[in-house]
């Protein structure tokens, strides 16, 4: 008998994943402009969903206010490039650093709220951010502002090159986020997080500092979400408080993606993102009805299959593409 993390499914996933990744990196040479924009958007949602999943599915921090960091990151991109004179790429990194810095006091406040009240507390915070940015007249106040043309031009020569760069950045952040979540969950810290999720009391008795573990997750997630936000508004080139801090766009959709795909798994947000965009591309003409269907599907999934699509797949085939758990393999010679 031996204990291992890998499985043949995971090995195949590595190979297939690598091929897909190479094809995606090469997209500027084979995909049209519209397809690349769509793919870019998919990557950014994938990143948001993976981050939300890390918080809600692993750390038990259910936030309905991550739009605070999306919007904050977007505004920081605009502020750092327009007033700080920083190149956009540096400004994106800067948005991440500032996102972490702002997440610290926010966490100190809202960590005083438990469970579901924490969730609404995060929403209040996002509203505070929105109202404050709406007061900043240098950034256009309530009506928002556009990224000046010379800053956009400074990114790369020509529109194609700019679009390719923006696409690669989106792909890059998605890969970085998923890799970071995966490596984190495999680390000592990640094991502590899983222990907390499984049994908070037992984890505490093992000497795990629950508050600190959750705090670190919250701050890191805030930083990465702010970077994703900066990228989102680098694609849009225009920002306004309502768009930047939209609970529907940056939280509702993200929650649906994670719930439908499978909360508390790394694969879930990936599946969920694909399903979400497939639905959107086919049903979005229905407008509000589409959104109602989305809400209904999420409720049904939560009640009937709380582990989402990936949970159903895994229950049937015992698959794990991102090996986190250990599995016990019976050798042929061992007796059953």
């Amino acid at each position: 008998m031996r204990v291992t993390r890998t499985s043949s499914a995971a090995s195949i996933a590595v190979i297939v994943g690598t091929i897909i990744l190479i094809a995606l990196i090469a997209a500027p040479w084979w995909a049209g402009r519209a397809d690349m924009r769509l793919l870019g958007e998919i990557f950014l949602y994938l990143a948001l969903a993976s981050l939300w999943n890390l918080m809600a599915g692993y750390a038990g921090l259910v936030s309905v206010g991550q739009q605070a960091y999306v919007g904050f990151g977007g505004y920081m991109l605009f502020a750092l490039t327009i007033f700080g004179g920083l190149p956009p790429l540096v400004a994106i990194a800067g948005a991440g650093v500032l996102g972490a810095l702002i997440a610290v006091p926010v966490a100190l406040l809202i960590f005083r709220l438990r469970g579901a009240y924490f969730a609404i507390g995060t929403w209040v915070m996002a509203e505070v951010f929105r109202l404050i940015f709406a007061q900043v007249s240098a950034l256009g106040g309530g009506s928002g502002s556009s990224l000046p043309v010379d800053i956009v031009r400074s990114m790369a020569e020509g529109r194609d090159a700019r679009e390719a760069l923006s696409y690669w950045l989106a792909l890059g952040i998605a890969v970085v986020v998923i890799a970071a979540v995966y490596l984190y969950l495999r680390s000592r810290q990640g094991l502590a997080l899983t222990a907390i999720r499984d049994n908070e009391l037992a984890a505490a008795s093992l000497g795990i500092d629950i508050w600190r573990t959750k705090f670190v997750v919250y701050v890191v997630t805030g930083a990465l979400t702010a970077m994703v936000g900066a990228l989102i508004f680098l694609q849009k080139l225009r920002i306004s408080p309502d768009a930047a801090f939209s609970v529907n766009d940056w939280t509702a959709f993200v929650i649906f993606i994670v719930v439908i795909g499978g909360i508390g798994t790394i694969e879930g947000p990936i599946i969920g993102t694909l399903v979400f965009f497939a639905l959107r591309e086919t049903l979005s003409d229905l407008g509000t009805v589409y959104l109602m269907v989305l809400g209904l599907v999420a409720i049904i999934v939560m009640l009937k299959a709380p582990k989402g699509i990936w949970g159903l797949v895994r229950a049937r085939f015992d698959l794990q593409l991102f090996p986190l758990g250990y599995r016990v393999i019976q050798n042929k010679t061992d007796k059953d």
């Binding site: 959104l291 809400g295 409720i299 009640l303």
Partner: peptide, 26 residues
């Protein structure tokens, strides 16, 4: 949705919120 797990009531009422909002819009 009621039980020890916090997520189901939260996410189900969140889904309800979206349905009611868009139903009213419709």
């Amino acid at each position: 949705t009621l039980g020890d797990d916090l997520l189901p009531p939260l996410l189900v009422t969140f889904g309800l919120s979206v349905i009611i909002q868009n139903g009213l819009l419709e």
